[in-house]
C-alpha cells in the first residue's frame, strides 16, 4: 500500500531495506577475501652473502645469487668493488643470462640485450636492468635495495 503523498509503496520501501542490508552484509566480506587472495608481497630489502664465495672473482666476472625468489647478478668492477642487478629482464620478467664472451646480458624470451653496465642496448627492453647496492662488511657481502641503509 502507499501512504498519501509517499514517493513509493511500503512494499518497495521494505524491499530496498532488506536488499540494501543484504548487499551491505555481502560487501563487508569483500575486504578480508581480497586481502587473503592478494598475498602480502615483499621483495627483500637486503640479502647477506658470504664474501669468501665472491672474493676470488676477477674484474669483469659475473656471478649469480638469489635475490628473494628472483635471480640476482653480481659483477666485480675493475677497482675490486661489486655491482649488483636484479637478474630479470625489464621487458617481460624473464631471467637474463650473462654471456661472458660477448660481455652482455641476454634475455632469450624476446631477444633483449644489455651491455656490461646493465644498460639496455638492443631488443624490446625499455629500461636498464635494476641496480642494487652492494657493500662488503667484514665476512659478509651485502646486497641492498637502493636507499636502504645498512642495518645495525
Amino acid at each position: 500500500m502507499r501512504i498519501d503523498n509517499a514517493y513509493f509503496t511500503r512494499r518497495k520501501f521494505l524491499n530496498s531495506i532488506l536488499g540494501g542490508w543484504l548487499g551491505a552484509v555481502a560487501a563487508s566480506f569483500i575486504s578480508p577475501i581480497v586481502k587473503f587472495v592478494w598475498p602480502p608481497y615483499k621483495e627483500p630489502d637486503e640479502v647477506k652473502l658470504v664474501f669468501a664465495d665472491y672474493s676470488g672473482m676477477q674484474p669483469g666476472e659475473v656471478k649469480n645469487f638469489a635475490w628473494g625468489s628472483k635471480p640476482g647478478l653480481i659483477k666485480r668492477a675493475p677497482d675490486g668493488s661489486f655491482i649488483a642487478w636484479v637478474g630479470v629482464c625489464t621487458h617481460l620478467d624473464c631471467n637474463v643470462a650473462w654471456l661472458p664472451d660477448k660481455k652482455q646480458f641476454f634475455c632469450a624470451c624476446h631477444d633483449g640485450w644489455y651491455d656490461e653496465n646493465g644498460t639496455n642496448v638492443s631488443g624490446p627492453p625499455p629500461k636498464p636492468l635494476r641496480r642494487l647496492e652492494s657493500s662488503v662488511e667484514g665476512e659478509d657481502l651485502f646486497v641492498r635495495k637502493p636507499g636502504v641503509g645498512a642495518k645495525t
Binding site: 628472483k70 631471467n95 643470462a97
Partner: peptide
Amino acid sequence: LMAPAPEG
C-alpha cells in the same frame, strides 16, 4: 627459478 630463460 634462478636459471636464465631458455632459448625458444
